[in-house]
Protein backbone atom coordinates (compact mmCIF):
# COMPACT_ATOMS: atom_id res chain seq x y z
CA UNK A 1 0.00 0.00 0.00
CA UNK A 2 1.39 3.44 -0.84
CA UNK A 3 1.75 6.15 1.73
CA UNK A 4 -1.18 7.96 0.11
CA UNK A 5 -3.40 4.89 0.14
CA UNK A 6 -2.36 4.33 3.73
CA UNK A 7 -3.50 7.81 4.61
CA UNK A 8 -6.79 7.27 2.81
CA UNK A 9 -7.52 3.93 4.48
CA UNK A 10 -10.54 4.42 6.72
CA UNK A 11 -9.71 4.30 10.40
CA UNK A 12 -11.02 1.20 12.10
CA UNK A 13 -13.42 2.24 14.84
CA UNK A 14 -14.91 0.31 17.75
CA UNK A 15 -17.55 -1.17 15.46
CA UNK A 16 -14.78 -2.63 13.26
CA UNK A 17 -13.19 -4.23 16.31
CA UNK A 18 -16.59 -5.54 17.37
CA UNK A 19 -17.22 -7.04 13.93
CA UNK A 20 -13.76 -8.61 13.88
CA UNK A 21 -14.42 -10.11 17.31
CA UNK A 22 -17.58 -11.65 15.91
CA UNK A 23 -15.53 -13.33 13.17
CA UNK A 24 -15.93 -10.82 10.32
CA UNK A 25 -12.81 -11.39 8.23
CA UNK A 26 -13.15 -8.15 6.24
CA UNK A 27 -13.29 -6.17 9.47
CA UNK A 28 -10.26 -8.03 10.74
CA UNK A 29 -8.36 -7.23 7.53
CA UNK A 30 -9.20 -3.58 8.09
CA UNK A 31 -7.55 -3.87 11.49
CA UNK A 32 -4.55 -5.51 9.84
CA UNK A 33 -4.30 -2.62 7.37
CA UNK A 34 -4.53 -0.01 10.07
CA UNK A 35 -2.37 -1.54 12.77
CA UNK A 36 0.37 -3.40 10.87
CA UNK A 37 2.67 -0.32 10.89
CA UNK A 38 2.37 -0.21 14.69
CA UNK A 39 2.97 -3.93 15.07
CA UNK A 40 5.96 -3.90 12.70
CA UNK A 41 7.49 -0.82 14.33
CA UNK A 42 7.31 -2.27 17.84
CA UNK A 43 8.48 -5.70 16.70
CA UNK A 44 11.43 -4.27 14.77
CA UNK A 45 12.61 -2.23 17.70
CA UNK A 46 12.42 -5.15 20.10
CA UNK A 47 13.74 -7.97 17.89
CA UNK A 48 16.20 -5.70 16.05
CA UNK A 49 16.04 -6.94 12.46
CA UNK A 50 13.47 -6.75 9.69
CA UNK A 51 13.25 -10.48 8.92
CA UNK A 52 12.47 -11.44 12.52
CA UNK A 53 10.14 -8.47 12.82
CA UNK A 54 8.15 -9.71 9.82
CA UNK A 55 7.94 -13.19 11.36
CA UNK A 56 6.74 -11.57 14.54
CA UNK A 57 4.08 -9.54 12.71
CA UNK A 58 2.78 -12.71 11.07
CA UNK A 59 2.68 -14.49 14.44
CA UNK A 60 0.88 -11.54 16.00
CA UNK A 61 -1.88 -11.36 13.41
CA UNK A 62 -2.39 -15.11 13.27
CA UNK A 63 -2.57 -15.20 17.07
CA UNK A 64 -4.87 -12.17 17.06
CA UNK A 65 -7.17 -13.77 14.49
CA UNK A 66 -7.42 -16.93 16.57
CA UNK A 67 -7.91 -15.16 19.88
CA UNK A 68 -9.77 -11.97 19.04
CA UNK A 69 -13.03 -13.65 20.01
CA UNK A 70 -11.75 -13.59 23.57
CA UNK A 71 -11.02 -9.86 23.45
CA UNK A 72 -13.69 -8.31 25.67
CA UNK A 73 -12.88 -4.65 25.29
CA UNK A 74 -11.60 -4.31 28.86
CA UNK A 75 -8.61 -2.42 27.44
CA UNK A 76 -8.35 -0.38 24.24
CA UNK A 77 -7.80 -2.58 21.18
CA UNK A 78 -4.42 -0.95 20.60
CA UNK A 79 -3.36 -1.78 24.17
CA UNK A 80 -4.39 -5.40 23.64
CA UNK A 81 -2.45 -5.45 20.39
CA UNK A 82 0.62 -3.91 22.01
CA UNK A 83 0.45 -6.71 24.55
CA UNK A 84 0.19 -9.44 21.93
CA UNK A 85 3.01 -7.83 19.92
CA UNK A 86 5.34 -7.32 22.86
CA UNK A 87 4.82 -10.89 24.06
CA UNK A 88 5.43 -12.29 20.57
CA UNK A 89 8.57 -10.18 20.09
CA UNK A 90 9.99 -11.13 23.48
CA UNK A 91 9.26 -14.79 22.84
CA UNK A 92 10.98 -14.60 19.47
CA UNK A 93 14.06 -12.94 20.98
CA UNK A 94 14.26 -15.59 23.70
CA UNK A 95 14.03 -18.56 21.41
CA UNK A 96 16.10 -17.41 18.45
CA UNK A 97 19.69 -18.36 17.98
CA UNK A 98 22.15 -15.89 19.49
CA UNK A 99 24.24 -13.36 17.58
CA UNK A 100 21.69 -12.52 14.92
CA UNK A 101 22.60 -9.15 13.46
CA UNK A 102 20.44 -6.25 14.50
CA UNK A 103 19.59 -4.04 11.57
CA UNK A 104 19.71 -0.33 11.73
CA UNK A 105 16.62 1.42 10.46
CA UNK A 106 18.52 2.33 7.31
CA UNK A 107 18.74 -1.42 6.56
CA UNK A 108 14.96 -1.64 6.51
CA UNK A 109 14.73 0.88 3.73
CA UNK A 110 13.05 4.21 4.10
CA UNK A 111 11.14 5.81 1.27
CA UNK A 112 9.89 8.78 3.25
CA UNK A 113 12.04 11.91 3.01
CA UNK A 114 14.12 11.99 6.14
CA UNK A 115 17.34 13.81 6.96
CA UNK A 116 20.63 11.93 6.99
CA UNK A 117 21.09 13.12 10.55
CA UNK A 118 17.74 11.69 11.67
CA UNK A 119 18.54 8.42 9.95
CA UNK A 120 21.98 8.28 11.57
CA UNK A 121 20.41 8.97 14.98
CA UNK A 122 17.84 6.25 14.40
CA UNK A 123 20.58 3.82 13.43
CA UNK A 124 22.70 4.69 16.44
CA UNK A 125 19.81 4.22 18.81
CA UNK A 126 18.67 0.99 17.18
CA UNK A 127 22.19 -0.37 17.63
CA UNK A 128 22.40 0.96 21.19
CA UNK A 129 19.21 -0.93 22.01
CA UNK A 130 21.30 -4.10 21.61
CA UNK A 131 23.01 -3.30 24.89
CA UNK A 132 19.71 -3.66 26.75
CA UNK A 133 18.11 -6.88 27.89
CA UNK A 134 14.99 -7.77 25.94
CA UNK A 135 12.80 -6.81 28.91
CA UNK A 136 14.49 -3.42 29.12
CA UNK A 137 14.13 -2.98 25.36
CA UNK A 138 10.40 -3.65 25.57
CA UNK A 139 9.82 -1.06 28.26
CA UNK A 140 11.94 1.56 26.48
CA UNK A 141 10.17 0.97 23.18
CA UNK A 142 6.73 1.31 24.75
CA UNK A 143 7.59 4.42 26.74
CA UNK A 144 10.10 6.38 24.68
CA UNK A 145 9.17 5.31 21.16
CA UNK A 146 5.44 4.65 21.45
CA UNK A 147 4.82 7.31 24.09
CA UNK A 148 2.58 5.08 26.18
CA UNK A 149 1.71 5.92 29.78
CA UNK A 150 3.18 4.03 32.72
CA UNK A 151 -0.29 2.69 33.38
CA UNK A 152 -0.63 1.31 29.84
CA UNK A 153 2.85 -0.21 30.02
CA UNK A 154 2.00 -1.89 33.32
CA UNK A 155 -1.07 -3.43 31.67
CA UNK A 156 0.80 -4.51 28.54
CA UNK A 157 3.74 -6.04 30.38
CA UNK A 158 1.67 -7.30 33.28
CA UNK A 159 3.86 -5.47 35.79
CA UNK A 160 3.17 -3.29 38.79
CA UNK A 161 3.74 0.44 38.35
CA UNK A 162 6.82 0.42 40.63
CA UNK A 163 8.23 -2.43 38.55
CA UNK A 164 7.66 -0.44 35.35
CA UNK A 165 9.35 2.61 36.83
CA UNK A 166 12.29 0.61 38.09
CA UNK A 167 12.80 -1.27 34.82
CA UNK A 168 12.47 1.92 32.80
CA UNK A 169 14.95 3.73 35.02
CA UNK A 170 17.52 0.97 34.49
CA UNK A 171 16.79 0.77 30.77
CA UNK A 172 17.24 4.52 30.27
CA UNK A 173 20.61 4.39 32.01
CA UNK A 174 21.74 1.47 29.88
CA UNK A 175 20.56 3.14 26.68
CA UNK A 176 22.36 6.36 27.55
CA UNK A 177 25.48 4.40 28.41
CA UNK A 178 25.32 2.60 25.07
CA UNK A 179 25.09 5.92 23.25
CA UNK A 180 28.34 7.15 24.77
CA UNK A 181 30.40 6.56 21.65
CA UNK A 182 27.94 8.08 19.23
CA UNK A 183 29.07 11.34 17.55
Amino acid sequence: MTATAQMLAPAAGPETVESACAGDRAAFEQLVAQYTPLVFRVALRIVGNAADAEDCVQDVWLAAWRSIGRYRGQAAFSTWLYRVTTNAALMLVRRRRPALPLDGLSDVGIDTPVSIEALAAADAVQRALRALTSDQRAVIVLREFEDLSYDQIATILDLSMPAVRSRLHRARIELCRALEDWR
Binding site: T112, V125, D147
Partner: peptide, 22 residues
Protein backbone atom coordinates in the same frame (compact mmCIF):
# COMPACT_ATOMS: atom_id res chain seq x y z
CA UNK B 1 17.92 14.21 21.93
CA UNK B 2 19.34 11.41 19.79
CA UNK B 3 16.82 8.99 21.29
CA UNK B 4 13.97 11.41 20.64
CA UNK B 5 15.11 11.92 17.05
CA UNK B 6 15.17 8.14 16.58
CA UNK B 7 11.67 7.85 18.01
CA UNK B 8 10.44 10.32 15.39
CA UNK B 9 12.13 8.58 12.46
CA UNK B 10 9.63 6.75 10.23
CA UNK B 11 9.72 2.96 10.22
CA UNK B 12 8.39 1.72 6.88
CA UNK B 13 7.07 -1.79 6.64
CA UNK B 14 8.60 -4.22 4.13
CA UNK B 15 7.04 -4.21 0.67
CA UNK B 16 4.36 -6.86 0.23
CA UNK B 17 4.05 -7.51 3.95
CA UNK B 18 0.31 -6.88 4.13
CA UNK B 19 -0.38 -9.06 1.10
CA UNK B 20 1.56 -11.91 2.74
CA UNK B 21 -0.34 -11.35 5.98
CA UNK B 22 -3.72 -11.45 4.29
Amino acid sequence: RTVRAAARAPVPEPAGLRARLV
